[in-house]
Design a protein around this nucleic acid. Sequence first.
DNA 1: AATAAAAATGCATATTTTTGCATCGTAATT
DNA 2: AATTACGATGCAAAAATATGCATTTTTATT
Lengths: 160, 160
Amino acid sequence: MNDKNSRLYLIRQLIREHDVYNQEQLLKMLIERGYQVTQATLSRDLKFLRAGKIPFRDGRYKYVLDETARLDPATEAAPSAGDGFVSLEFAQQLALIRTLPGYANMLAIAIDRARRYELAGTIAGDDTILLIPRDGVSREAVKKALQWIFPDITEKIAKS
Amino acid sequence: MNDKNSRLYLIRQLIREHDVYNQEQLLKMLIERGYQVTQATLSRDLKFLRAGKIPFRDGRYKYVLDETARLDPATEAAPSAGDGFVSLEFAQQLALIRTLPGYANMLAIAIDRARRYELAGTIAGDDTILLIPRDGVSREAVKKALQWIFPDITEKIAKS
DNA sequence: AATAAAAATGCATATTTTTGCATCGTAATT
DNA sequence: AATTACGATGCAAAAATATGCATTTTTATT
């Protein structure tokens, strides 16, 4: 168990247990724990561990591990969500989402969980979701919010 | 279907169908296709799409989409692979991997697929894999190769 | 043990990405 | 139609990350 291995171990642990926004922050944590390295080494370590940096819903970028990518709330809340999504249209001040049969509930839950300000609430049937935007929220803003929740929906709502 | 949406659409498509190593490259592709934007906009687009940049086995960094993260060969070849992995030890010039019952085959396949030079081949039982390194490959190198294949194994082999 | 070979790391720098600010265009509102 | 509000974008600069090269450290070999 040379020092490098334990360092890699710790890095993984830190990424798993903290929100790591950049290497400098991670570096600080390592140094606090007695690991004397530089950012350059850290960069290489992260590459070795195949840790990636991805944008999060909170508007920031975080490092994630391979495994984390699978467990990330964003991913978890909407597992292949886009698959069930069929179409989006607007009527009055409301949005109607069509889904594959049986998918509506699951998608609605994902939408609720996202807690986007723009979206006041949902009512789900079997293959339809009624989406109620908050007062004054434009259709564009609703689309935007949905895209944020389900990035892989982009193509499907391109022309709505 | 404003221009921005179709651009986002195209960006997703490009990332899905090409290996995108950086924003400049992506920018070039967009411009070739008639989208006149700057790298700054691209950065914002990628953030909106929650596209992340992660290190790949080929030693380079690539952009990936949420969905891709789930389908990435590295992930695909070893779906929760680390979970099945129990321990690693060496005997003679050979490596012995212990797995949970029934996992050996799956892990061995993942190892074979990785086609690491260091690893000549595997023989899998039910909960054990015999791993044959190539001539002259050190134990350290074998560990390294395994870590590369299964990043989430790092902790488990820390002290082997 | 001495020597050769390979790996790890720091330093400095290049590369890449993100962002504040100003501007422009478009859509909503009066 | 004029006015206001908001989103999109470019520009330039800051921030963050990756890497070539030189050096040190570790590991293997004779």
